[in-house]
Simulated scan of single mutants.
Amino acid sequence: MPESSASVRDPFRRRGVLFVLSSPSGAGKSTIARKLLAAEPGLEMSVSATTRAMRPGEVDGKDYHFVDIERFRHMANNGEFLEWAHVFGHRYGTPHEPVDRALEQGRDVLFDIDWQGAQQLFQQAGGDVVRVFILPPGLDELRRRLIARGTDSMDVINARMERAAAEIGHWDGYDYVLVNDDVEHCFNCVQTILRAERLKRSRQQGLIGFIRSMVKER
């Protein structure tokens, strides 16, 4: 019986990718993340634990794992997080177990985290991590986008601009840096990076055995 097309395309098992998207608020990261999740089978969003209150429409376990401060501290002290940080007065952290399980099963996990989280994740997971930083075309354009959203006061926008300047200063801690001056082009670049990283030799877990079996056939 002839081999299926799936087995010919993927003769050995692949380890998953931890795919990080970071950017200043307003640079378009969330839009690109949504498009990537819709376009790429096998990619899932990391679900963080947080101490902030649940917002209308959010679902525990889907949007976030909502926990109180004591539970969060217990998880952090027990080493249950790949990374965690204080962000705008609340704590957010990425639980180890579901991410480890996804990696082993060849599923890819998308992270929407800042440079500190990306650094912690890389320290914990090393070669499994791919870090992409998305820049706005300029700070004036970033301010214009934040104002156009109409969701924040000028005080909040000014605080976001200050944070943006600090975040941009860490661009060199990423594997890829893109400028989002056209969302479709930027999305296509991000998608290309993900697809290329999936094909890396280091992620092909059965490659050595596959090559050895070919050599024995000679």
Rank of each mutant, 00 (worst) to 15 (best):
D112G: 09
P136G: 13
G79F: 01
D128M: 06
H86F: 11
L82R: 03
A148I: 03
G117E: 06
Q105S: 10
W115G: 12
Q123R: 15
Q123C: 13
Q124A: 14
V67S: 04
N78L: 09
Q116D: 13
V67I: 14
D68P: 09
G89K: 03
Q105M: 08
Q123A: 15
I134H: 00
I147L: 15
R71I: 13
A76V: 00
T94M: 15
D100C: 12
G89N: 06
V87F: 12
V129F: 11
I134W: 02
E80V: 02
F133V: 04
N77V: 00
A102Y: 00
R73K: 13
H90K: 03
I113Q: 05
P98A: 02
L146R: 01
W84C: 03
V99N: 06
N77P: 02
V132H: 05
D108H: 11
F72E: 06
H86K: 08
Q116C: 10
R131W: 02
M75D: 07
D114I: 04
F66C: 08
I113G: 08
A148F: 06
A118Y: 14
I69F: 06
H90L: 06
R149C: 11
L135P: 03
L110S: 07
L135I: 08
Y92I: 15
A148E: 15
L103M: 00
T94C: 15
L121S: 12
G106F: 04
F122R: 15
D140T: 14
E70F: 07
D128C: 05
G138L: 06
R101P: 00
R149S: 09
G150Q: 10
E97W: 13
E141G: 04
D128F: 10
E97C: 08
I134F: 02
F66N: 04
Q124E: 14
W84V: 03
P95C: 08
N77K: 11
R73D: 15
H96R: 13
G138V: 01
P95M: 03
N77R: 10
V132N: 10
H90N: 12
N78I: 01
Q120P: 12
H65Y: 11
H65I: 11
R131D: 01
P98E: 02
A118G: 15
W115R: 10
Y64W: 09
F72D: 08
G106A: 02
F88D: 12
I113E: 04
D68E: 11
R149M: 07
V99D: 00
L135F: 14
R107C: 02
L139V: 09
D100V: 07
T94A: 15
A76K: 07
F111L: 04
